[in-house]
């Protein structure tokens, strides 16, 4: 079982950490360097945590728990207008990054208004590419309970609603975080930070639940193992986009164009098999990206049986 942790320290002797992680059979998920400071998200076997802890101490860094590492989360606002951005949408997105998640902020094209608020099938499909979605709504219970619930009723990934009024529950969502609503300034007061924490915990619970569901029929290969192989591709190495490979709970997003790289991706060798056999590879709705969904053990067995019988 892998454990995801974040090293927060300096660049001095950082290669020693990378080598140690590799030696114990772990993976480096993400590196973010700011001059001489660096944060490294790593996935390591749980039993080897003390080794990494002692190395971290030796390097003068600290090890932080990142429960949302290896997930990509969409924070959705009704529109991209200044009524919703940058606060509180960006505050929530930024706070979730502290928990290790990669977050994406998006606004709906026709999400404004009360009865006129809409979400398109395209937008829903886009949101469903992520591990979870947070809908940031407004200040009126009447509007949210009667109209805005339509926005996320058909979305299949876990949805967390962040809103102003005190609403105990809403249909088709995992959790409701109340007391946020519209903001004209940054969420920096103690009570507001508590709300950001509450949101992060709600997302964490939803992700934990989804991880448990996935564990019932585990993936045939861990996404971090696939990432390690994908990282070696020349087109990925040359990609200038931030985080060219993003881990998901059940796969990964590779920020290279599907048309140009699909064959290269399919031919990657994973434990003696081709990546194309173990996953479904499809173009992402995020321009110039490719989605890789890893098959579960049962799905792989079914696929193998079907191929051997035909």
């Amino acid at each position: 079982m892998y454990e995801v942790l974040m090293f927060d320290g300096g660049v001095y002797r950082i290669n020693e950490l990378y080598e140690l992680v590799e030696d114990i059979g772990g993976f480096v998920i993400q590196k973010t360097q700011l001059q001489v400071a660096i944060t490294v998200t790593i996935a390591i076997p749980s039993e080897d945590r003390p080794i990494i802890e002692s190395k971290t101490k030796e390097l003068g860094g600290k090890l932080v728990e990142v429960p949302l590492a290896g997930t990509e989360i969409a924070v959705v606002a009704p529109t991209l207008g200044r009524h919703h951005m940058p606060h509180p949408v960006c505050d929530i997105a930024e706070h979730l990054r502290r928990y290790g998640a990669i977050t994406v902020v998006m606004g709906l094209a026709r999400g404004k208004g009360r009865e006129t608020a809409q979400i398109t099938a395209d937008e829903m499909a886009f949101i469903e590419e992520y591990d979870a979605a947070i809908f940031v709504l407004g200040n009126f219970a009447d509007c949210i309970m009667k109209e805005k619930v339509r926005l996320f009723e058909d979305i299949e990934v876990p949805v967390i609603v962040v809103c102003g009024p005190n609403i105990s529950s809403l249909p088709n969502c995992e959790a409701v975080v109340c007391g946020v609503g519209r903001k004209a300034e940054r969420m920096r007061h103690a009570d507001e930070i508590a709300k950001l924490e509450e949101t992060a915990l709600a997302v964490e619970a939803a992700i934990f639940k989804r991880r448990n569901i996935i564990d019932e029929d585990p993936l045939c290969v861990h996404p971090a193992e696939v990432k390690q192989r994908v990282d070696e591709l020349e087109s990925v190495r040359q990609s200038l986009r931030p985080s060219p490979v993003v881990l998901h709970l059940d796969g990964l997003r590779v920020k290279v164009p599907y048309d140009q790289c699909k064959d290269m991706l399919r031919d990657i060798d994973i434990f003696g098999r081709k990546l194309g056999d173990l996953t479904t590879i499809a173009p992402s709705r995020l321009g110039g990206s490719t989605m890789i969904r890893i098959l579960t053990t049962a799905q792989l067995q079914t696929r193998d049986n079907a191929q051997s019988s035909s």
């Binding site: 200040n139 009126f140 219970a141 009447d142 102003g164 009024p165 005190n166 609503g181 519209r182 903001k183 004209a184 300034e185």
Partner: peptide, 20 residues
């Protein structure tokens, strides 16, 4: 208005906007 939370938050919001 009909909703207490909304009333209070809009008063705060307007005050903040005017200050900005």
């Amino acid at each position: 208005g009909t909703e207490e939370y909304g009333n209070q938050s809009y008063a705060d919001l307007f005050r903040r906007i005017l200050v900005d």
